[in-house]
Design a protein around this nucleic acid. Sequence first.
DNA 1: ATAAAACTTGACGAAAACGTCAGGATTCGC
DNA 2: GCGAATCCTGACGTTTTCGTCAAGTTTTAT
Lengths: 212, 212
Amino acid sequence: MARQSGDERRKSGGDNEGRIRARNEAKILEVSVRLFSTKGFDGTTISEIAEESGLPKANVYYYFQTKAAIYERLIAEVFDDWDAALRHIRPEREPREAIGDYVREKLESSRRNAAQSRFFAGELLRGGRFLSRGQRQHMRDVTREACAAVEQWIAEGRFPALDPRHFFIMIWATTQFYADFAPVVAATLEVPRLRKADFDDAAEQILKAIHF
Amino acid sequence: MARQSGDERRKSGGDNEGRIRARNEAKILEVSVRLFSTKGFDGTTISEIAEESGLPKANVYYYFQTKAAIYERLIAEVFDDWDAALRHIRPEREPREAIGDYVREKLESSRRNAAQSRFFAGELLRGGRFLSRGQRQHMRDVTREACAAVEQWIAEGRFPALDPRHFFIMIWATTQFYADFAPVVAATLEVPRLRKADFDDAAEQILKAIHF
DNA sequence: ATAAAACTTGACGAAAACGTCAGGATTCGC
DNA sequence: GCGAATCCTGACGTTTTCGTCAAGTTTTAT
């Protein structure tokens, strides 16, 4: 009996997964993030995931023990990207450049991975019940560090005296918005669908509107 | 046989609902907006709504034909508030005051009706499938009018040359964010729970950060 | 008081979802 | 080539949910 589902298997190895497993897991996750993002956790069924992945349902259960397991894997994936953009904010950089890069990268990544972005937004909207303590703590640490950089800029007189925490909230809110609430944005801009150019405009306008 | 469910009844009267009906519908809607906002449409069950409303399930169905009917009623309710705040933006007003009022009102109303705010955000995040064509159109009209006011300010040299559409998106994104993603905001501000003072700070910081 | 309208409710049926299982088919390491 | 590990899958059981129904009780209007 060679039954052995998903997680157990990876406990030591981790890297050298079978190609088949790698391919199928990837496919399942790719389909899932799209479905979860538009229909939510409860609105998405495993049958649906299976169908769109081109696998029978039981096969999905071969790779993931439960629906929650899929969801959690996705959370972890998104999480890895969470702070990547924030690394632009370093005290030794020029504020205008650092923040410009940050805004542009945030917009671009949420544009390119819109489903992922909406998926995570949905999770946060619901209170982040699937976020582990460690993940929450990590978010806090990363944010604190970025705020420290801004505070240093302020102390050096290179930045206006704003509360960096609200400043980041503002940036984050705005950049997320374009991808997560695309229908509203499209309606406001009076275009049928958002294109790359709209995101570029957004970056420019955001940087122009913020007083720094 | 006096069977007659919800919607039919109101077709002509509309105003003079029985008190019992008014009370029970209100209770159901109040409970529903909270549940929908934290668990989503599919994650919320009628049994749950019934239980928390203190009514048997069949009674909920006496007032609302389907779960979707409850959801749609809530959408319509939220919708009525959508543009109320935007009415502060009028060309004859002083830009600083008008926008200040707008930001403060938006923050305050999303703070006071956090569940409603999150509920609507969730709907938009999912692509706004429950929004009627008319509602979409209305959003567009209201937005266009507000943009026209800003454009007039710009023409009169009372406002910086920003694209008003991106400007409003930015404001809307930011103000919503405080209520809708409260856990993230609380983590960033390093407080256990957001209080009124935090929202007041937010208003101040937003207005200070925006260049106008 | 009385009849009609409005309201309440326990029990029920049908459909759908989750997750399981036992056994068959493929692939892999040697 | 062969045995073991991995992968695949149709059918199934259980639970949950939506929504219905028919028979009650309470309120309201006259």
